[in-house]
Nucleic acid binder design. Sequence first.
DNA 1: AATCCGACAGTCC
DNA 2: GGACTGTCGGATT
Length: 884
Amino acid sequence: MNIEQLEEIIRELTDGFDAENFIYDLLLAYELPKASITRLRKGTSNLGKGDCDLLWKNRVCYAHHDSADLHGLVDQLKSNSRVKSAKPRFVVVTDGETLLASDTKTDDSLETPLSDLAKHFDFFLPWAGMEKSQLRSESVADIRAAEKMGRLYDLILESNPPKTDTERHSLNIFLARLLFCFFAEDTRIFAEDQFTKAIDSHTAPDGSDLQQYLTRLFKVLAVEDRRDLPKYLADFPYVNGGLFCDEHPVPKFDVQSRKIILDCGSLNWRDINPDIFGSMIQAVVHSSERGNLGIHYTSVLNIMKVIEPLFLESLRAELDKAGSNRKKLESLLERLYRIRVFDPACGSGNFLIIAYKELSKLEIEIFQRIYGDQQSFQFESKIQLTQFYGIEIDGFAAETAKLSLWLAEHQMNLAFESVFGSARPTLPLHDGGHVAHENATRIDWEEVCPSDSENEVYILGNPPYLGGKSQSAEQKSDMDLVFENAKNCGQLDYIASWFMKAARYVSENANARSAFVTTSSICQGSQVPQLWPLVFRLGVQIHFAHKPFKWSNNAKGNAQITCSIIGLANQPDAVVIYDDHGKRNVRFINAYLAPGVDVIVAPTAKSLSALPTMITGNNPYDGKNLLLTSPERESLLAKHPEMEKWIRPTFGSSNFLSGIDRWCIWLEDEDVEAAMKIPEIAKRIDKTRQFRASGGEVARGLVSRSHQFRYTHTAKSNSIIVPAVSSEKREYIPIGFLDNRAIILHSAMAIYDPPPWVFGVVSSRLHVTWVRTVAGRLKTDLRYASALCYNTFPFPDLAESQKQEIESCVFGVIDSREEHPEKTLSDLYAPSKMPGSLREMHQRLDETVERCYRSKPFKDDDERIEVLLQRYSELIIRGSKADA
DNA sequence: AATCCGACAGTCC
DNA sequence: GGACTGTCGGATT
């Protein structure tokens, strides 16, 4: 949703107020579903029935009365029983002049002349799914400004397309300078509206001389000498070198682009929040990311989750200990000035800005403790932007980061002034942050942020996540460089580069520590054995970790990802695990972000415990042409009953768990000739061929046998199916037996022709506990992989009698499931719905399986995992000895 | 030859 | 619109 458009639409609605349609058009403006509104307009789904003009469940209750006591009307509607049961989010009433609205969830109310409604558009944003708590007023300002800047950027690009990197760089700098001027004239760096007014009155409306004017002005801002300048330029203060020193060409303008500059100037930049504004601007400027404004910027909450454990908690602890002891406070100040904050993927600088602000707040607190409120003293912050370092691959973001740091410095100067009555002057600008426009995976970090035994270096940030298959060729070669072509690293996420480089930096500097927000997947499943042995080999430890949490920020569409935060240190003084509920001190954090045992489980091709082979199900590679739904199968069979023998029941994870029938065309080579005579089959095979021919390398290799799946594994008598992904909420992973007609798809694992007791092993609580530790995840759900979960599972050799005991329990489980033929496995294994009898049968099975390990029952899952890891380590050692 | 992954993706209410 | 829960192609091993 575009906020500017929204405002515009509402303005039109109120300017030409149309009593009949007003409320419907208002709802449409918030992008509520058109079809529903059409139905409401017709009256068919309006629940109002005379009490009000419109009543829409969960959304709105609306009434229009020309001469009504609006407050009375709202109260009356709110207490009406029909309205109550419809639970409308808003009750809206108007007399055609004034509009009164009440938010039933937050109890906020809005009373405004109808003509001013557009100004209060944010009141109804919950209709569009944006809650007020998520959308603070300053972020409305941010979004509005970002959208305007995006338009300006487009226009400038159109008439000044950059041809070279130098030109692109100049354009970035120009925009950063422009932003500075907008901000400056609203926050007392310049005189009020000085910049916009100057353009308005000193340049031609057609934009023709704006380029010349800005070129001159930017030059003037960089020189101290104000003599020999016309007054309208001399009135601007000296800003300095940093931002304005080099000469960069200013783009050409026309009527439109000049007008947008003036529009931008009229926005209220005082409310802009440099923490996130930079990210929004960046998103707007990169058209590919437009529409998901700032989807990847890190929320302040998540930034705090990084910087608090990394250094803030330690600084605060030192402050507490210092109390009012002047000496200790002064030494803490010295420590503040020795801190270096380094974000090697800084984007537009969010982390650096928040870190800067937090350190400044701490400095203010210390000053207050030392000097009280002695107004006479000249307090000046001694925290320098030069303590902040960044690397950013995108040129525009790098410029925005530098600029945002200056803006943040100015904001903190104002904060200083409001506490102490004076502060260091913002102008001329001090030296800025060290933000290198470089590829962080390539450049030596010491070159950007040199370590120094005197200083404390904190490396932090939220580097980019890109799975092994989503990386570009260049990013792949970045990875090769960082990992020095180490073996079996090809599937690592791109972010692993940052961990590797941080580990190297930290391992060489006792005073350096790092912490990144990361995709959780580097601590799960197959990436663990790829990355962490290399990190731990450097002598680095995880000194704190935040357990996986769902990514969220205030952007419209949040990224679909589960994150963790991981801190690395050389010699940690404490090791702490955080989750959403709090923190706890532990002795050691392993690569799975679990406390305790230092074990990494590597995938193996064969079961370490000699369990029968489990392999991935058959991957069809058919473009959905060899697979059939039940109706498709029935209509085929109606015409060609002889096809029955070539149609097999088919199971992936999903339809196995939810009990939906699926089918596939399954032909042996010798069947092809006969089958091709049936036009429907010939058509499907041909479509499969076309699909494969236009696919990747693997697909093209399968063109010549398009009548078959990529793999054609089947059971002689029966098989066990294990879903590849299963909800983490289930106590057990639901697995099942299938007959020899069944085809298992590659969204599930298969053991063909197994002895029945294996079902008991894989179903057992002991095994699920193992899987929860070592498996990869899809969000937080378990992802079952044979090489990681099954082949690594340590299981004792069984006597025949033990196998029989387990088998009898297995049949108990099966029988108990069959007592509920109407229920799907998904129903049966939902934790809240699991039938008591089934749970009992599983418990009996668990006890039997666990007795294979030892006679004494296990106390809890912690003990189970400890014993399993212990046995795993022994198996690995025995295995490596056997190899040698 | 077989795998394990996805700044995810489809479905349901 | 968000709660819920697992597809499918394929570069890598």
